[in-house]
Design a protein around this nucleic acid. Sequence first.
DNA 1: GTTAAATATGATATTGATAATCATTATCTA
DNA 2: TAGATAATGATTATCAATATCATATTTAAC
Lengths: 146, 146
Amino acid sequence: MSEREVLEVYLRERGQKMTSPRETVLDAFLKLERHVTAEELLAAARRIDPGIGQATVFRTIKLLAEAGLAREACPDDGARRFEHAYRHEHHDHLVCVECGAVVEFKDEAIERAQQAVYRRHGYAPSGHRMELLGLCPDCAKASKRK
Amino acid sequence: MSEREVLEVYLRERGQKMTSPRETVLDAFLKLERHVTAEELLAAARRIDPGIGQATVFRTIKLLAEAGLAREACPDDGARRFEHAYRHEHHDHLVCVECGAVVEFKDEAIERAQQAVYRRHGYAPSGHRMELLGLCPDCAKASKRK
DNA sequence: GTTAAATATGATATTGATAATCATTATCTA
DNA sequence: TAGATAATGATTATCAATATCATATTTAAC
Ligand SMILES: [Mn+2]
Ligand SMILES: [Mn+2]
Ligand SMILES: [Zn+2]
Ligand SMILES: [Zn+2]
């Protein structure tokens, strides 16, 4: 199923409508490969159709997240960031506190241990956020050299 | 060293001053045992001294975090939350998506595996945020009963 | 203790992200 | 194709957090 079909099914299920602005925002989002803010997404969508409104972008990215096409990444700064979620395996982030470089990783030992925590407390898992902060090799070298 | 002394040392080190509003905010913070927002902290501080300004609370809680007395917990809703960090062992949070119930935990297997991730990518650790989301036993029961 | 330099305060205005409102327009179903 | 319904985009509102700035405190030097 294509991303567009996923969205159509999600909308139809709840009596909502597929529209051309929504398609534009989806296309813009799919072309951006990494963590994007609503503002960046608005700019990208307007490159396709300059008439797109800001409110529509906020509404649509939320819709994409609900439909399972986008996923919210923990915000570093003020603005929320979204990344692709459909046919992208779950992963977490290792972020450099100095330059902001991001490494995506998935660690099976961590994922297993997280499941054990859920079990231990009788919680039913519904996702997690994990962000490891640190100093990347380049920044460590730069700061050592002072 | 008391929390107050920690703050005094931190301030003196950078030519800043210990003041009575800062002491009030610190006292209010120390009495609140759990994750608080700036707004809640303002209310608590005003119970001690009604003249405290909102800006001072925002400024002071940031100061407390820098001094190692407070730690920012990942925000569930809009507002940032802070918890005690001095003489409190590091821990992560398991949060119910339905009722907001929070379990604090520390899992050595996860912590160890996180260190391995840092090593694998050559990053120097400087802290992490992890929040496990799920449905607590009570909410699971309630939703099963429909 | 008095004083002067420096910093802090609190009232207020401002920002920046997101949400709500609403008159108009587009979509979908029958 | 028409009519019911939902979506759009311009605008306004909200809310946390910051910036501004005149006044007040603190501190260190006399
Ligand atoms: Mn990612
Ligand atoms: Mn906690
Ligand atoms: Zn770096
Ligand atoms: Zn619950």
